[in-house]
Every structure is written in C-alpha cells, then in structure tokens.
Design a protein around this nucleic acid. Sequence first.
DNA 1: TTTAGGG
DNA 2: CCCTAAA
Length: 659
Amino acid sequence: MVKRLDYGLRGFQVPSTAKRPRSARRRGPSKISAEDGQACAFELLLSLAGKLLQESESSASSNAAEGNHLPAFSPNVVEKERQDEVKPLLDKGVHNGSCAESIFMTELVSQKSSHKPLEHAETDCVQECVSVNNNNSVCWEKVEADVKSKNLQCENELGHHFDRLLEIPEDFRESCDGNMKSGFRREQEASNSGLKGSSLDNKFSLKDPLELCISPPALIDSNSNVKSPFCGELFPNASFSRHGNDNKLGFRDDDENFLRCNRVCTKSKAFRPPQRIARRRIRQLLTSKCWKVAPKLKDCEHSRTDEGVKPLYRKRKTYYSFERSRRGTLFKRKKYFGRGSVITSDGGFSSDSVSNSPDKGMNGDSPNSSAKLHVSKDSHVKFSIKSFRIPELYIEVPKTTTVGSLKRTVKEAVMAMLGGGVHVGLLLQGKKVRDDSRTLRQTGISCEENLDKLGFILEPSSMQASPAVCVGEPSLCKTSQPNRSPETLVLDSEITDALQDSLLTNTGNLVKSNHDSPSFSTDIIADKITTDSRALVTVPTRNTEALAVTPVNQKTRHSELVQRRTRRPFSVYEVEALVEAVEELGTGRWRDVKLRAFENADHRTYVDLKDKWKTLVHTAKIAPQQRRGEPVPQELLDRVLAAHAYWSHHQAKQHGKHH
DNA sequence: TTTAGGG
DNA sequence: CCCTAAA
C-alpha cells in the first residue's frame, strides 16, 4: 500500500452539524420537538396554578397582616425555621426509615390537633399549601413567565383536563373554573390563622361537588425549581463524593469534543469511554418501588440534612440524577417521595384531599350524614386533589445547558408521561376499584371512613396492567408491579420503565424541595402550624427523603439507563479519512486510526471506526443498488476493498512486525 | 484500554 | 451502534 505521509494531517473535521457532543446528542435538546403540542397541557396546569397563586397571594397578603404566624412564612424566616426547627422532626423522621414518615406525621398531627382536633388527622396534616404564601410570589413568577402566554386558555383547558382526569363530568368544569381560581383565596380568607392552604374545611364548604385544588408548588417544582422534583441535587454528599468522578464525568460529558484536550480524565478505569458516561437520563420510578426500598436505605440518612443537601446541590447544579453503579457503571439513586403514610407522594388523592369536608350538617341522604362532611347534603362527595405529582423524574443535563433547555427537558419528560393519555385508577383501601358502573356510594367512596383510603392513580394509558400505587393507605397498598411494556412512553428513547409507573395523585402534600428557592418550603414547622388548627402542616421537605439514594434494581434498570447514541452516519469526507488511515495503518490498529484521522472527532471512537470499516467492506461487496444512505464514491469503496484485501493478507505479518 | 466480533 | 470476551 502506498504510504501517505500526509495522512496524519488530514484529520477530518466534524461537520458543524455533528459538533454536538455525543452526550449532548443523547440528552436530547435536539429531540425536543413534539413538546409544543403536548406541552400545552402541562403548561396549562402551570398557568392555572399560577393564577391561583397570584390570587391567593393577593388575598393572602391581607390575611398575613392579621395572622400572627404569617410572618414566619416569609422566605427568610421559613428557611431559617426549617433549619432550626423543622429539622429535628425531619431528622427523626428520616432516621427512622420508613416508619419515620408515619411518626413524623403523627407528631404533626398531634401538634396540630392540639389546637383543633382533626377528624382526619392523617389526611389533613400534610398540606403543601403552606408554601403558597408570601414566598410563593417569587417562585411563582418563574413559572408564570413560562406560562404567561398560555394563561388565558389555561382555565378553560384546565377544566377539560381535569374533567378528563377525574372523569367527573358533571359540573366539573364549572367547579374548576369557579373554584380553582378562588380556591386558595377562599382558604385564605377563611383561615384566620394566616396559613392559607391549610383550611381544608373551607374548601369543602364550596358548593361545587368536586373541587380541584391544584397546588402551585408542585408545579413550580417541576418547572422552575431545579432541585426538588429531581432528586439529583438532593443526594447526600457522601454518596456523591463516593463517586468521585461524577463531576468530572459530567463535565466531560458537557464538552465531549474537548475531551482530549481539556480532560485530564480521571484515569478511572472503571469507566467506559467518557462519552458514555454523560447521558441524559430521565427516569421515573414507581413511588411504590421507592417505598419498598426505602427502609433499606441507610447510607442516605447521614446525608439527610439540609446542610448536606445544599452543598451538594450547588455542586451538582443541573445534574439531576447521577446514577452510577458502585462499580463505576451505573447505579441508581433514588428519591423517595414518601409514599408512606403521611407523606405519600403527592399524587394521590389520599385521604387528605378527600376526607375533609366540613360538615354542613345536612346530608339527608348520605349514609354518613352525620359524619364529617365528606358527603354534602346534596349527596355529593367532594374531592380535593391538591396536586398531581409526576412520580419521579430523573434528569441529567450538562451544567452548561441552558435553563430553557432544562425546562424543555423537563417538559419533555412530563409530556412523555402524559402525552399518551392518562388513565385514572381509583384505589379504595388499597384495592383498585374497577367497576366503573357502580356509584360512589355503592363503592363505599362516599363513606368518610373510606375516603381516607381513597386514592387516585394516574397511569399512562399505554399501560396495560395498571400498577397500583396507593396513596391513602400505605399499608394496604402493596405496590404491584405493573406489567410493563418496555417501549411504551419512550422519552427520547430513553425513558425508563419508570414511565410505566403510574402517576400518583396525592392529596396534600406537595413535597417539594426547595432549599434554595425562597418559594415554597414544605417544611413548615408544626408548632407554628399548630397554633392554628387550620394551619397547614407541611411535610418535611421531601428533599430529605430524596436524599435517600439507592441503587434500585440496578440489574434491571441498568440497560434502561443507557441510551443508545444517536446515529451519525459517516460522511463521505469521514469515509475518505478513514480509508486513507486504514490504508496506511491497517485494519488492526483502530486506535491509531482514530488518533490519526479522527483525533478531533470525539464522537467517533475507535470502535466506531472499526465498525464503520466493517460496514464499508460490506458495502463495497454488495451491489450498489443495495447500498443505503449517502452513497459512497465507488472509488473509495474500491480502495476499501483493496485495503481490506491487502491487510487481511498481511495481517499476520504486520502483527508480527509490531511485536 | 484496545481488539475483534457478534448482535 | 452496542456489548463483551479477550488480550
């Protein structure tokens, strides 16, 4: 073969279009496409929530002046309190493992009830609404900005959405339009305590049979608050540090192209090519699953402190989830949205939402007329769903990504889950209610006792079997492993099975974690709240829980975590460079080929080059008609065959030479 | 980590 | 392109 000294200088240049780091390719900003259409729903929700917040805020302000406790909710104060006061509770709860939540709950309840007994303590206790206070304005704005444009439509459309979700056609829309807007306001007005969100009673006093309370916080979380929904930053430092390479890897991911120059790669051998490491991963996990594992998590505990969390957060920034196996491959960090007792993640319509209806004293026909007011005199059962929480979302993006990109990514993930439609499941005492034809009364949903154990499940419509995740009654709800259809709901082709997991609607708690954001702090302290019976009791920040990191089902999930690189067909130019390099170096020195001709093309690994050569040889052998893709000049193919033949023949000899 | 091949 | 056994 002819030796061409200039080969080395011919390194090809990556086409501008191909410049994106491999990792970036996977992450998908480019893939974000279908969002617009689908995004609508989500944004609508956001916008609606925004409205609610605004209104509530305005009304709240007046209340705040009066309320003794409101001041406490100012952003600063809240933060402080959380640290000082809430923390103890949290810690306790946290350290107790799964039980912790229950305990914590209990405490909250007791405190709260001290002032005013709650009929459904468990239900009421956890309210996320607290955050919807002074703070919310700040947060909200963020959200608002995004959805501003859609505000107008929001209300109407929201009504539709919920209508669909709840499947409660009757008057639903009206209630949405009417109540949702004013929902917060009413609560605020009604509550003297100044804790607005808490007064469930007020809610139930509403005329509309069905009330939906959308809690802004949740929305905000997903939208603007980087930290909460994604557990990533919440992870304990310890775990984070454990994988010392995480940061670096992340960076590498960011600019893969500069790997060679800039990366002083940690020479960790455990890792595969850096390119692979960084990938966007969006995962959703079943809450239930989380629950299962939660008790076992131990290493998380130590890190479950605010202190631990924050630093981590800063460090990780947008790295939402970093999942890596202990061996250096991938391991999964899991966030737990407490599914357990109190803190059931939000999705469900747990007792909270359902149970509290103030009794108006008239329910003639309702079985439990005397009971609390779940059933109003008009025989309506009132439901209040605080929010729908997206189960779990794992997102990993480069630090260099833009906020907008992040938002799109989140949206993408959410839409991937919801875009395919949602089926609503109903859980009663842990059991799924399947008979759609039965009345609520017949089903027992109208009974207050049962309301506590009522839960709604949102599941991807594509799902075949409905997984059951329950909210109201943890003990009763054993997570059922959904039959997952592997390919359903694929986000960027990398949605994990998580998507299959059902979405929970949870009543009350938005668990959001906003350590850094002044916005909604979930962790409001009980004592503050206790003063007012109506006060909202917030659940300890989820963050804490989120801290729990667990490798979950690594085995099963591993494959799911890894996303296939986007296909990048070789250009003729690249082929030419490859051919020339191979002509000179032979077919057994792919690393050298890479270095020589593709040194600056970080998205081409020597394996890629080897594979390409393989296909080139194949292509050269087949009839031109059978070839696909960008046609490769016959001249090049001829050279491929020639080189292939040559090196095949001399392989042994060359091999001996080098050794 | 790189090669070599199968998937 | 991915995955891996081997080297």
